[in-house]
Design a protein around this nucleic acid. Structure first.
Length: 505
RNA sequence: GUCCCCAUCGUCUAGUCUGGCCUAGGACACCGCCCUUUCAAGGCGGCAACACGGGUUCAAAUCCCGUUGGGGACGCCA
């Protein structure tokens, strides 16, 4: 079989939706895993809602996800133009050919009347279809009226279906789909104002672009028989392969809410998720690897992706699962990728000043590496690493865990011993290790009894990365001389001891 | 209303096409234990599902019919 050609056809009416991104991902995976082409087509015929900045945003989001395309509006290609609005002439001409062939006809009906009829039909207990009134106008008369009356163009379903009782097509995910012809009325191909209808434009464009596989959301499944009819009228030898992906839904099965964010790729990007993490979570919605593993890189997914393994039922998008996967990907990301992201979020949260001081980059690299495996998204870094940047005895003591350690005579002795051992020198890993050993010999405390009090006193927080790694990073931060300076560890311990000196429990 | 799609732990899913290997497997979340230089991570364990009702069969999560529930289409929206 020749190389497949697939297309992703978003409307630039907003930022890239998660569900739409998933459709793009599956198309991309299908093309890339089979040596095919991934075509990007912008469906912008709805001029009122399609904005150039939205188009740019969608393209940007796709690039960020790493879903590059082979042909599209910016780089062109042999099947252009790739903006539907620039293909209007083709749509019009094709529609005229259908009229001449008797597969389509002009409809002069009043839309208000049509609407009323639809309601009546439905109330009477059936599908609400166009009754086919204008189909019966003689061709000569119809042609004459076209010159002076505004009109739409409809497909003559009876003529195209050739007496069949049902329209059938094969779906790669759902199998054989059969729709009774009685459910399909003569639908509109060209609107009164001269724009093509969706069901017409997609089919013609896909045909002209030689698309071999249409991979899209389940919401288009019921439209497909109509499109099969259009393709047939247009003389296509056989329909393309179809694959209708189950929809992604939100909590409780309701549509993913766009309101609170969290439904658009831009939001996840803004939050500092890695694209690998998002891709991994998205691909697991309706698809699973043959081996059952779920932590997957793009390459691993590509190596085993197959539409046959796509499920037919809708999936609820689970943020917890995303976060679990995302933090694993974060931990794998290189420091050079993490640094700019971290700087951005640290600056935004006010932990770092806006022109970031000289030398801060390397330090932030070491810092973020300590925290990466506990971060689903970089927006969590300022909170996780807050103790490094902000130290305030009264704030620290507000934590019951911290207060407890400092009010316990035994743990106070541990902390006091360490302060003596370290002295005024900056803490390095070997120096800390030596001091901790000395404290252990002096006090007899070990394990949790030893290290937890030290952590609490030296950082001001009850939890964080491994002490021996964290402490030197804090000390390095001190030397950076930030506008709001990082407080040295020993100073923290002294301040906390002083603040609680009379309060032993 | 008519037609189409869907239905396994709370969630994502494996298994369904090709019935027996399923006392239904994994992951996330949750709970417990272990380890440990705290917490986290890691290791081990636990909780937890075949929507319901009929049929076919020696045997059904798997095939068939029905019911219920969810989603979609029936637009001169996409």
């Amino acid at each position: 079989m020749s190389a497949p050609r697939v297309r992703f056809a978003p409307s630039p009416t907003g930022s890239l939706h998660l569900g739409t991104a998933r459709t793009a991902l599956f198309n991309w995976l299908f093309a890339r895993s089979r040596g095919g082409s991934f075509v990007l087509r912008i469906e912008d015929t709805d001029a009122a809602r399609s904005l150039p900045e939205h188009e740019a945003g969608v393209l940007d989001d796709l690039r960020w996800l790493g879903l590059g395309w082979d042909e599209g509006p910016d780089e062109g290609g042999p099947s252009g133009p790739y903006r539907q609005s620039e293909r209007l002439d083709r749509h019009r001409q094709a529609a005229e050919r259908l009229v001449m062939a008797g597969a389509a006809y002009p409809c002069f009906c009043d839309t208000a009347r049509l609407k009323k009829e639809r309601l009546e039909l439905r109330a009477a207990g059936g599908a609400s279809l166009y009754p086919g009134r204008c189909r019966r106008i003689a061709p000569a008369e119809a042609a004459a009226r076209r010159a002076r009356e505004s009109h739409a163009l409809r497909l003559n379903v009876d003529a195209v279906a050739c007496g069949e009782t049902a329209i059938e097509f094969n779906d790669l995910i759902h199998g054989r789909i059969r729709t009774p012809i009685t459910q399909i009325g003569d639908f509109v191909l060209m609107r009164r104002e001269g724009r093509p209808s969706y069901n017409f434009a997609v089919v013609l464009d896909d045909l002209e672009m030689e698309i071999t596989h249409v991979i899209r959301g389940d919401d288009h499944l019921s439209n497909t028989p109509r499109q099969v009819l259009v393709a047939r009228a247009l003389g296509r030898s056989g329909p393309p392969g179809f694959a209708h992906l189950p929809l992604i839904v939100g909590e409780g099965g309701a549509p993913l809410s766009k309101r609170e964010g969290g439904a658009s790729v831009a939001w996840f990007r803004e939050q500092g998720y890695t694209p690998e993490g998002l891709i991994n979570a998205l691909v697991l919605l309706g698809w699973s690897a043959p081996g059952g593993q779920d932590l997957l890189t793009r390459e691993e997914i590509l190596a085993c992706f197959d539409l046959e393994r796509v499920s037919g039922s809708p999936a609820i998008f689970d943020r917890q699962k995303l976060d679990a996967l995302a933090s694993r990907h974060m931990a794998r990301a290189s420091e050079s990728r993490l640094i700019p992201l971290a700087l951005d979020h640290l600056r935004r949260s006010g932990h770092l000043p806006d022109p970031v001081p000289e030398g801060a980059g390397a330090w932030v690299g070491r810092l973020v590496s300590l925290y990466a495996d506990r971060l689903a998204k970089m927006a969590d870094l300022p909170r996780e690493a807050a103790p490094v940047f902000r130290f305030d005895p009264s704030l620290a003591l507000a934590d019951p865990d911290v207060r407890k350690e400092l009010c316990e005579p035994a743990t106070r002795r541990v902390i006091e011993a360490l302060v003596e051992e370290i002295g005024g020198e900056p803490i390095t890993a070997p120096r800390f290790q030596a001091a901790a050993d000395a404290v252990r010999r002096r006090t007899g405390a070990k394990g949790r009894q030893l290290y937890h009090p030290l952590r609490v006193a030296l950082t001001g927080a009850p939890s964080g990365p491994e002490l021996v790694k964290l402490l030197p990073v804090i000390e390095e931060g001190v030397r950076l001389r930030l506008p709001r300076p990082v407080i040295p560890c020993v100073e923290r311990a002294r301040a906390l001891l002083a603040a609680t000196s009379g309060a032993t429990a």
